[in-house]
Design a protein around this nucleic acid. Structure first.
Lengths: 251, 251
DNA sequence: GAGTGGTCTAGACCACCAA
DNA sequence: TGGTGGTCTAGACCACTCT
């Protein structure tokens, strides 16, 4: 990097990664850095901006530029005892899973394809905020085919389209009882920067990407019983999988 | 957003997401936006900077501010026929997997813990660049315990510490032949913004996060035979898993 | 009130790309 | 060569936090 702000950013980055600033420490104030490097204010801010977007620091008005702490906690799939709900996956007792919206909707083309339905088919859409340690760690948007929702309403008597029906917490168990025992789930994980609205809802600092997980679950008869898109805060969670490397049936 | 640059960014973002600018299109030049909004140059640049760090656009000197195309391709684990190598996981015939460094090293505490060894134990370290469609999509750093590397050198006659020994491509097969048949792998996936060096090596545009996958593979006797840290370009790949939801042994 | 970072201006010069 | 974005300055005013 041959620019002034690049050199300043390099110096500060090296100091942070080298441990000379620890998590929670503050970088020198902008006026100090202006004097040290003999540059203008915006040049210092460009340097700090680079570190901010790398996720290393968070500038706080009235406080200073604080070195970030990175302690994402892991969510794990253990094939020996598959955890099925957010609260089961979290050892943290403060973990919570709140249904924010629930209701009937029409499947857009993408969702319809994921569920193997015609575009515009009726589905139940549920949006949840999954939190731990005070902050929202994941937004979970889920779509369930009409037939599955109806079977659940008929058998266990739970209305998935009602966000206040608390009996709908453990959806996979309800599916089992309704004759749609979930058998296999496929998750596809990607990452991107959050939209401003996602930043607001989850309270993400600048420079934090999100993990985007798209999942489709099929029952024992290979029927798609739900599909979900989950958007998780990259500084608060990881996702882990344990997979057998030998062909199925060979276990 | 109540700032000037925030409003400009909102307008442009809405236009992009609303399809008024398509992938490959250019935003109006900075001088035009200065006139349209009657603001200074840096105010426009702040707005464009926000969109850049959201991954929506890439400014190119001498060209313009180009709307990004987002087409990550999926890597999948299919439990029925577990793909073991990068080239096997990719349908793309241009996919390549090049060993950039290979040699003996001492395990740092983190790697030692992942392999169940004492810190400082001797391991083979291998660094690969995995590419597709011209660009490097993933950096793969891998550590193999001394015992496993020696068993492989003894049985199939392959030297893992030699980056030019091309017979080492399909490591999992070599392990099987050397009596360390890989049985189970655990992958933990997180995300963060890339370090500047990672941006350079992979040619990542600003605003693109990386997928960080940490993997440990165990053989049939539950011995750790390798651990890897993979850093993948968030705009070029996703990782997918198919998992059985029923307890092991119940399949 | 003192000190922090956030926004904005007007102008300058530089680096890069395409015609 | 003309137009694009990239960097940098000097100065101003604002918003916020802490004591």
């Amino acid at each position: 990097m041959h620019t002034k702000y690049g050199r300043i950013a390099d110096d500060l980055r090296e100091a942070i990664l080298g441990g000379r600033y620890k998590a929670g420490d503050k970088l020198p104030p902008i006026p100090d850095l202006m004097r040290s490097y003999d540059v203008a204010r915006d040049t210092v801010r460009d340097a700090i901006g680079a570190l901010t977007h790398e996720g290393l620091v968070t500038p706080l008005r009235g406080v200073g530029t604080v070195v970030r702490e990175i302690t994402p906690v892991a969510l794990a799939y253990d094939p020996k005892a598959p955890a099925r709900t957010w609260t089961q996956q979290n050892s943290d007792p403060s973990a919570a899973d709140v249904v924010v919206e629930a209701g009937w909707d029409e499947a857009d083309p993408d969702i319809a394809e994921r569920l193997g339905l015609a575009a515009g088919a009726r589905v139940v859409r549920r949006l949840r905020h999954q939190s731990r340690g005070g902050g929202i760690a994941q937004l979970h948007e889920q779509w369930i085919p009409e037939q599955v929702a109806n079977d659940i309403a008929r058998t266990p008597g739970t209305n998935l389209a009602d966000k206040d029906d608390v009996s709908a917490t453990d959806l996979f168990s309800l599916m089992s009882e309704a004759g749609h025992d979930p058998a296999v789930t496929t998750e596809t994980i990607g990452t991107r920067m959050p939209a401003p609205e996602e930043r607001d809802v989850m309270g993400l600092p600048p420079g934090v990407p999100v993990l985007v997980t798209k999942r489709t679950t099929r029952d024992v008869r290979d029927m798609a019983v739900e599909t979900s898109t989950m958007v998780g805060a990259g500084d608060r969670m990881t996702q882990s999988f344990t997979v057998s490397l030998r062909p199925a049936g060979d276990q």
